[in-house]
Design a protein around this nucleic acid. Structure first.
Lengths: 242, 242
DNA sequence: GTTTATTTGTTCGTATGTATT
DNA sequence: AAATACATACGAACAAATAAA
């Protein structure tokens, strides 16, 4: 195997193995060839095979058993792959529907102890509040309540700019590295009831998250509501080798 | 650095780095020493340092930025560390309360198309249904409805055996490798209302999961209900380097 | 704006240890 | 007891991307 087009070899190997899994050449219950055999087959070092396998373990395609072998993970119907609440665009794609984002309002908000502390902002710093509703074929899916430090937004933004990806807007100024998210089950109140066109008292998800840069600088605080009849939270838990 | 007591070097290095993070020697916003420097400091190879760092990235202690450096993750109040719905015993420990498990019933159930298919069981196979309620200081926290393939349970079990860890019971026969979980937000119905001593119409989490062995053999199907006023679903999302 | 230095990323080869079958 | 297969560890080198001079 050669290093074509600057794509690393271990990623190419990973892709080929994943392909064989998808085509049923490697199947659940059957052990994969050993690392040494795979190294020979692809004509790369064993370390490279290990890196490829690790990549696929992270992607939940394979599982390893210490000193025994590598196996294909039984995915069953749980397809999504990505852990956590599916992203809006992912859901749209999965359901084959057209996404649309409506900006309800953009405004500068008044000082608030808790929020300013959470964003590690100075008292005189400007925080922008953005409210959006995201639709799928005119079905309201998500209501977002975002609080962004203005210093991390491009200058002279029009309200319409927020109809697109907020992350892309922010990344013109600072790179986003990670976010911490907490999800609760709550009841729809009057306001959400109107937005979602659903009766009060229905259950829904409320996801609160904080977004950070690599250096750990808080960028944005996000409170989002998801209709529970359309969203499911899914993940794969791997048992740590004791 | 030496390989003491059979504990791998990279884990020792990881522990030392994590220690320095906890003690505030390495802090958020400040770059960690480079891999080469750390290798020198600990007197190990660079690859070993990389393995240690990768371990801490998995543990959400560190974050990396391509070709720039390694940084400490800003955890803020989001403490838990473990992704996903906190385990019952974790919550117990965190809240400093005493856990207790009440077995409501253990029985062999009648054949059901869907369930048997999900567990990949033959028609004549025996599936055991276990119902439990888990309390924290007499507060009902979780209601469990488990379906286990009898072949993966030890013989001659008494009902009281299910008061302890089901995983430990199963692992006397077969090793558990992973599980797929889906979480929904639902409303408490009459039955759950009685179990949880909460009014009907409150929101709660319903987690459905399937448990597998390394070879992808389905072991157990689990439907669990969590009171949303005590449980939060938390996780850290890391932005993939594009 | 270009070059240079730094830092992480990738890859090889090799060797030994450890757990399972 | 031996063979197998993964786990750990080192050294060495070059590539690629970023940041600093």
């Amino acid at each position: 195997m050669e290093n074509k087009k600057g794509i690393s070899i271990y990623k190419q190997v990973a892709k080929e193995i994943e392909c064989k899994v998808k085509n049923g050449i490697y199947v659940t219950a059957q052990k994969l060839p050993s690392e040494a055999e795979l190294a020979q087959e692809f004509n790369v070092s064993r370390l490279t095979v290990r890196k490829a396998i690790n990549l696929l373990i992270e992607k939940k395609v394979l599982v390893k058993h210490q000193n025994t072998g590598t196996y294909v993970m039984n995915r069953q119907k749980l397809a999504s792959g990505a852990s956590g609440l599916q992203g809006f665009n992912e859901v749209a794609k999965a359901k084959g529907k057209t996404p649309r984002t409506e900006v309800i309002g953009v405004s500068q908000i008044d000082y608030d102890d808790e929020l300013w502390a959470e964003l590690e902002a100075k008292e005189n710093e400007v925080i922008i509040n953005v409210n959006r509703i995201r639709y799928l074929d005119d079905l309201p899916m998500t209501v977002e309540d975002l609080y962004i430090r203005e210093k991390f937004l491009p200058e002279n933004l029009k309200e319409a700019a927020f109809e697109n990806s907020i992350f892309e807007l922010i990344e013109q100024k600072i790179e986003i590295a990670y976010s911490h998210q907490e999800i609760e089950a709550v009841l729809i109140d009057k306001m959400m009831s109107i937005a979602f066109e659903l009766p009060v008292g229905q259950p829904m998800f409320r996801a609160t998250s904080n977004v950070f840069s690599v250096t750990g600088v808080p960028i944005m605080h996000d409170i989002s509501y998801y209709r529970s009849d359309e969203y499911v939270f899914s993940n794969t838990l791997v048992r740590s080798q004791h």
